[in-house]
Simulated assay, not measured.
Amino acid sequence: MFRNNYDNDAVTFSPQGRIFQVEYAQEAVKQGSVVVGLVNKTHVVLVGLKRNAEELSSYQRKIIEIDSHMGVAIAGLASDARVLSNFMKQQSLGSRMTYGRPIPVERIVSQISDRAQLNTQQYGRRPYGVGLLVAGVDESGPHLFDFQPSGMTYEMSACAIGARSQMARTYLERNLDKFADSSRDELITHGLRALKETLSQDKELTVDNTSVGVVGLAPEGSKGRIESFKLYDGQIIAPLLEALEQTESGETREGEMEVDS
């Protein structure tokens, strides 16, 4: 029944130098439904697969807007994600009230990392059982960060976390060279295709189980410098799924023509 005597709290190291409470929190992230993030020179895209506990329940919220220039996608315990997202909203609002400008993405990621790592230093606390993909734009351009329950963060060109995310990561690695020069719509299509790779054979992407969040630099000639974070959810996402189907059907026809020739 008992694995060891070193997993009763988050401040005790095992003889191998491991903190099992952190590993349990990371396992909660692996059990969550998958989310995918991609970034190019102008935009960041978050794509999430929503999950419902049963047929009578609503779908879990996967992408949360933090500020007009930032949003997060979650994988793991939604309650822990709510705590961290509320903290991020408070810090973002504080930056606007104190300094009159949006908080830099790297700074707020560093703040939630410090908060998460503090839970591995104080007895009676536990690590947050949630992973975040933080997408935002600041003066240095678009950014995508991967946040882990241990407090570790990495800036990524593309990333996927959650259950069955390895298939999405494989797609992202194979098509990484195409992201940098892609357009906004092409980046969304790549994100949806990566998300589709994680589905089992009896499931498909629908307006009910798919969410997309986009933020980036505004086109030249626009009033503002930043294109505000936009969440595509429900029926709003239908045109994006239709564009995905058209792209895949077009590639299928091209493949058939090459085989015939």
Rank of each mutant, 00 (worst) to 15 (best):
R96C: 03
S113E: 03
P142I: 03
F145V: 10
E186A: 08
Q90L: 12
T198F: 10
G141L: 06
M88P: 02
V134S: 02
T210K: 07
E155P: 05
A163D: 14
T98F: 11
A116C: 14
G94S: 10
L118F: 14
A81E: 00
G100D: 13
T98L: 15
S165F: 11
A194G: 11
T98Q: 13
I74T: 00
S110A: 15
S200V: 10
F179R: 06
I64E: 06
R174Q: 15
L172P: 00
E106L: 08
Y99F: 15
Q111W: 12
M97V: 14
Y128A: 08
L195S: 09
R126I: 07
V109E: 01
I188N: 04
Q201P: 03
G76C: 08
A160S: 11
L195N: 08
Q121M: 09
R101Y: 13
E186K: 09
S183P: 09
S157M: 09
S157P: 04
V105Q: 06
E139K: 15
G129L: 00
S92E: 07
V105F: 02
G100S: 14
T189V: 08
R125V: 04
F179Y: 06
I103N: 02
T206Q: 10
I74H: 01
L187F: 09
M167V: 04
L192D: 02
I188P: 00
E204A: 08
R169A: 01
L205S: 10
Y128I: 04
Q166S: 14
Q201K: 14
Q111D: 15
Y99E: 09
D185H: 07
V105R: 03
V83L: 13
D208P: 02
Y99W: 15
R126C: 07
Q90S: 13
P149N: 08
G71W: 00
Y99N: 13
M88T: 02
Q111T: 04
S200Y: 09
S211K: 04
R125G: 01
R193W: 03
R107Y: 11
A135N: 04
E155C: 05
R107H: 13
S183A: 06
M70W: 03
P142N: 05
A194T: 06
G124F: 12
L84W: 01
N175K: 14
I188G: 01
A180P: 00
R107P: 03
S68E: 11
S140H: 12
A194S: 11
A180G: 01
G76T: 02
L172K: 00
S183C: 10
G191S: 07
A158W: 02
A163H: 15
I74Q: 00
F87L: 12
T98G: 08
D114I: 05
A135G: 14
R174K: 15
A158Y: 11
D138I: 12
I74D: 00
D138L: 12
T198I: 05
L93P: 00
L192T: 05
Q91Y: 07
I74A: 01
Q122G: 00
A135D: 06
F87M: 13
R125P: 01
D208M: 11
V134P: 02
P149H: 02
G94E: 13
R193I: 05
E65M: 07
M167W: 08
L144N: 01
R115L: 14
E204I: 05
L176M: 12
L144Y: 00
D185F: 04
V134F: 08
G94R: 14
Q166A: 11
V137R: 01
V130E: 08
S183W: 11
Y154Q: 08
D208V: 04
G71M: 15
N119Q: 12
